[in-house]
Design a protein around this nucleic acid. Sequence first.
RNA 1: GGCCCGUUGGUCAAGAGGUUAAGACAUCACCCUUUCACGGUGGUAUCGUGGGUUCGAUUCCCGCACGGGUCACCA
Length: 544
Amino acid sequence: MNYKKLAEKLLPDAPSISGFEEKYPPRNLAKGAEVTRLAPSPTGFIHLGNLFVAIANERIAHQSDGVLFLRIEDTDLKRKVEGAVESVKNSLRYFGIKFDEGAEIDGNNTYAPWYQRQRADIYRAYVKDLIARGRAYPCFCTEDELCALREQQTTEKKITGYYGGYAKCRNLSEEEIYRNIEAGKPYVIRLKSMGNPEHKIKFHDEIKGDITVTENDQDVVILKSDGIPTYHFAHAIDDHFMRTTLVIRGEEWLASLPIHLELFSVLDFELPRYGHNCSLMKQDGETRRKLSKRKDPELSLDFYRKEGYYSRAVKVYMLTLLNSNFEEWYLKNPEKPLEEFKFSVNKMGKSGALFDLDKLNDIAKNELAKLSAEEMLAFLEEWTNEYGTDAQKTYFTNKEYLLNVLNLSMGTTSKKRRKDFTTAKQAVELISYFFETPQRSDEYRTDAETRKQILSAFLVSYRFEDDAQTWFAKVKETAGALGFAAEMKDYKQNPEHYKGNVADVAEVLRIAVTGKANTPDLWSIMQILGDTETRKRIERAIKE
RNA sequence: GGCCCGUUGGUCAAGAGGUUAAGACAUCACCCUUUCACGGUGGUAUCGUGGGUUCGAUUCCCGCACGGGUCACCA
């Protein structure tokens, strides 16, 4: 078989491979600097799992004074979604992932282009070379034939795929090949695998440690019938010529590592180091499973923006899952920039972690409790402008009033901060009673008759000018007069002597004024609302 | 099913051949309290299973079970 002639016939316009090594030379970086990448396919939104891997790659690159680049794997034109690249970039920017090079960032860089569709020449050159060397061949099998083969293998309990004796186009005669080409039959180019699955290879994974890999024997497709490479081939070419040093990717890729190993070997490229990151899991009924784009739209990064999660909180949570010693470090250094944490690949977990919303929420509360009222206002306003209701947008017209509300709600003036806010969405809803009259509340735990007594009695003695002490003394007085314990201690000693205690009375007042059982200091709230509004609300509550 | 990866409380997990088996979230109790929170103290709760190796194993080895991933002209 004249392989050179065949290569020329199949890919007449493909360039020679000479020159590419010079065109994309090894990077001139300091020792220890890592080149990492993010290589999403533009098939829609990006989710938490992507961010998870992204943060790891970002930390590794920038911590070592290396490079992080963005490559777009757009080889599958069927699944392409318009605007996906912009969306990916925006989402990642929101979470502080900055690329040094890549698509939409650095089009004229030495290692560009960053869209795989624009790199066709390189792929085709190497495919042609492989054919010329007899290490790749055209395959004319149709989809139906492959399907039938798979069925046959399944019923025979054989391993499915195109390999060994099942790879029938591998043994086509020269004559048959040319006849097929002349007949205009569509074809793909397959790798002629030399592997043997009996052979086990020891492989060092940067995250998983030493693992066993089975040698590949599948004649995988490297060039699709439309002339575009498959992921596997593009990965080998691109990560070689973009001079990636460390590939951190999801563990779903572990299964195709044997293919990549053989590809790098047959292309005579130096292998990058690999780290296969465990996937983020989700509880799904009885079982848990990998987060999936299709099944878990609520875990899209946009979801967190819509809910108004503070980006740093999400990042902190990701880091605690990513590096087991991060949480302890952060506890000791709550004020330090996240970048000062020394991220290490070998501290990354080996088993998939279940996504825990409670934990995220706890982190979110703590993060928001670090903000000043001004910062909080800016954060809430940004969210509201994009996702809030028209009514909520009006909260921001009187900034001075809002600042008072926020200072009180966050407890910025007291020594202990409140931690009521979890997300922007929830926070804006939480402070709504400062701007809108609360609806009839179902949070009451006291019967209507007693409520009326409490509220009416309170209204009689209430004076807006009273200071906090005086005000509360009156609350106690009211409580006592109606058979409630004015002092907590008295109540605890003899609970049976009372209808309840001050806390119950205060709760009724609180709900009447705010519609909520959980709010900051009531007196302060009344001060912010003003005399008229406070009375109006209590009177309304009495009539309920 | 083949191949690969994994298995410490409800969750995230540290850990090491001999420990009272860290810590965080959640949960419960109590304390503080001028109400709501914040905060503080303490409690409940974990080494999948069977064999080895060893004076001793949760830690090392083997089997099993269970969970996960993957087997495309998708990435």
